[in-house]
């Protein structure tokens, strides 16, 4: 599955600041702990499509735990761009 946002769970300290700035409020606290003993945040599979790649979570994260990628606008456009690039 393609995910526009991913959290590096080994870096997350569970401060939850990303949860407060997400405009779609799709980031939630998981019940998992990482190896440092911190609870980590997650975006559940059923809401991950709602992510708009605004990167607000990445900007506020003090621990650089968030990676965000832009969604391709349309699959066709992406293919055309690739042809030009090639």
């Amino acid at each position: 599955m393609m995910r526009p946002v991913e959290f590096r769970e080994d870096r997350c300290k569970g401060c939850a600041l990303c949860m407060t700035v997400c405009p779609g409020e799709i980031i939630t606290m998981s019940s998992r702990f990482n190896t440092s003993g911190y609870k980590v945040v997650e975006v559940r599979d059923e809401v991950v499509e709602e992510c708009t790649s605004c990167a607000a979570c990445a900007l506020i994260c003090p621990d650089y735990a968030v990676s965000v990628w832009r969604k391709p606008a349309k699959a066709k456009k992406g293919e055309t761009a690739d042809v030009h690039a090639g």
Binding site: P4, S53, A55, A58, V66, S67, V68, W69, R70, P72
Partner: peptide, 8 residues
Amino acid sequence: MKNGKAAF
């Protein structure tokens, strides 16, 4: 979506 352009 690691092939896409990074937003951050």
